[in-house]
């Protein structure tokens, strides 16, 4: 029997095809169409689309509902699960519910603290951490059982991913942390925004050394900066985003009206700098509230669907 929801992402990464994923900005809307129209802008350029999980500790469209809407529209989702809002009971319940809706790719992250968001008075859960979130979902996947040992009718078919941030301390530990997540069940990785190619290269070198040259697939996180002001805001307010001054200065050289273009150019430069590195399996584009920039980045770097499959 063919599995109509089999993960295309898994097939691509396992066969070593260069892969492009992107994050859709979840709209503050109560209508399906608001999300679907954004996802359709990305779809022609991506192999799968990330659905965040109330990122930045701000409530957004439910990740499972959003993933179901994408599946209805024949778009493959990568659904993000964070540890902030669910304990192990809710997590396992949501994972099997998502699987029933056709979700195959699950991306496990720690999650931003509630202090980051617009409800800093909320109770943060963190019953699991990103590694035990992976082991918990991997347990469902490999045994078909909940942590308690209670059985499901069959094993869920899941492809698990995890985050890596080589751009913040402790730098020398980040490759080891990736491998810990790999042992815990993660089969692919997407990185935080890369604005520092040399930092990424040293991370990659260590990872290649630790894995005798065959690391699990890593997609490099990239994104366009809309303006120098936005770049500063991002650096100050989003945990874990490191943007070197020279990138911001480069964009600031232009008058405000032309900064968007300069931001896309800077992003294209980063993609060009990382796409051919050994150990890079693809890129992951996070264009916050700016879906239309994805086509420009993909086209300028020769990574359209036809371009990257040749």
């Amino acid at each position: 029997m063919t599995n109509k929801h089999a993960s295309n992402l898994a097939q691509r990464l396992e066969t070593g095809l260069f892969t492009v994923t992107a994050e859709v900005t979840l709209p503050d809307s109560i209508e399906k169409e608001a999300l679907a129209s954004r996802a359709h802008i990305l779809e022609p350029y991506c192999d799968a689309i990330n659905i965040t999980d109330s990122t930045g500790a701000v409530p957004h469209f439910s990740n499972i509902a959003a993933a179901s809407i994408l599946i209805e529209n024949n778009i493959e989702p990568i659904i993000q699960f964070s540890c902030r809002d669910r304990n192990r009971i809710a997590t396992q319940a949501d994972v099997i519910g998502a699987h029933a809706m056709g979700v195959r790719n699950i991306f496990c992250v720690t999650g931003d603290g509630v202090q980051t968001g617009d409800h800093p008075e909320a109770k943060a859960v963190f019953d699991l951490d990103s590694v035990t979130l992976l082991t918990t979902i991997n347990h469902l996947k490999t045994t078909g059982k909940f942590l308690s040992g209670r059985k499901l009718d069959s094993k869920p078919d899941l492809f698990l991913g995890a985050a890596v941030n080589p751009f913040v301390p402790p730098f020398e530990q980040r490759a080891l942390r990736l491998l810990k997540k790999h042992r815990a069940g993660a089969s692919f990785f997407q990185s935080q925004y890369c604005f520092d190619i040399s930092r990424f290269e040293s991370f990659l070198l260590l990872l290649l050394e630790l894995t005798n040259g065959s690391p699990p697939p890593v997609l490099v996180g990239v994104g366009p900066l809309r303006s120098a002001r936005f770049a500063r805001w991002l650096r100050e307010n989003v945990p874990g985003v490191a943007i070197p001054d020279h990138i911001i200065n480069q964009i600031e050289k232009y008058p405000e009206k032309e900064q968007q273009k300069a931001g896309i150019e800077a992003c294209v430069k980063i993609v060009e700098g990382v796409k051919n590195l050994t150990g890079v399996a693809g890129i992951h584009i996070m264009a916050h509230n700016w879906e239309s920039s994805v086509s420009e980045i993909v086209e300028a770097t020769g990574l359209t669907k036809t371009g990257r499959n040749n």
């Binding site: 540890c83 603290g113 963190f126 035990t132 913040v168 301390p169 402790p170 810990k180």
Partner: peptide, 21 residues
Amino acid sequence: CPKNLRNGPCGGVRGDGNCEI
């Protein structure tokens, strides 16, 4: 760790090595 992480740092560590929260 304010997130009670028992398996390593989150991705939110600040450039100076201080806590996100």
